[in-house]
């Protein structure tokens, strides 16, 4: 009994330390998405300047796709851009773009300079659709399944490691 009274507080303290230490490794900016396993929010977005077609939620049905939230102002978007270009070139997966809060023409000019990986792009100038998606910053990428349901959300630029270790396995599973 005496032993227990001595060791229990130490064990309790150690437990709390481990618990809090795990908490420190989590990034508070990576909020879990409320949309997981839910249908994509209904939206119809116009085309960006110089493009004929915009993007609407009904476009996302039929095949597994990525919905990428980006903007010409977004510094981190340029990091993942070469990877998105490669995915588009190899027809690995259909990528849809939502141009978030860009001034008219800015998104189109950026794509002209950097290349366009998107099958369709919607112009979300006032950011309302991004809020329906629960977006906290750009870039953010959603994986939509064949039924147009959101299955995964990745916050931040997709690096080759993120693609190979996190996103590709989910996409392959959904494409089966």
């Amino acid at each position: 009994m005496k032993r227990l009274g001595f060791y229990m507080p130490i064990a309790l303290f150690a437990g709390i330390v481990v618990y809090l230490a795990i908490g420190l490794t989590l990034d508070p900016n990576k909020l879990p998405s409320m949309l997981i396993d839910k249908p994509v929010p209904e939206f119809v977005l116009p085309a960006i300047e110089g493009f004929d077609q915009g993007l609407s939620s009904s476009d996302l049905k039929g095949k597994v796709s990525l919905v990428n939230i980006w903007g010409s102002w977004c510094v981190a978007c340029i990091i993942e851009h070469p990877l998105l270009m490669e995915l588009a070139k190899n027809n690995t997966i259909t990528i849809y773009g939502i141009d978030w809060k860009d001034p008219p023409g800015a998104g189109a000019a950026w794509l002209l300079k950097e290349g366009n990986p998107y099958t369709l792009i919607g112009d979300d100038a006032d950011g309302r659709v991004a809020i329906d998606f629960g977006v906290t910053g750009a870039p953010e990428t959603f994986i939509a399944d064949k039924d147009g349901r959101i299955r995964y959300k990745y916050i931040g630029p997709i690096t080759p490691e993120v693609w190979n270790e996190i996103i590709l396995p989910i996409v392959e599973e959904l494409q089966r």
Binding site: P32, M34, G134, T136
Partner: peptide, 9 residues
């Protein structure tokens, strides 16, 4: 409306 999109957080 906001909680539906961003959660209880």
């Amino acid at each position: 409306f906001v909680v539906d999109r961003y959660g209880d957080f």
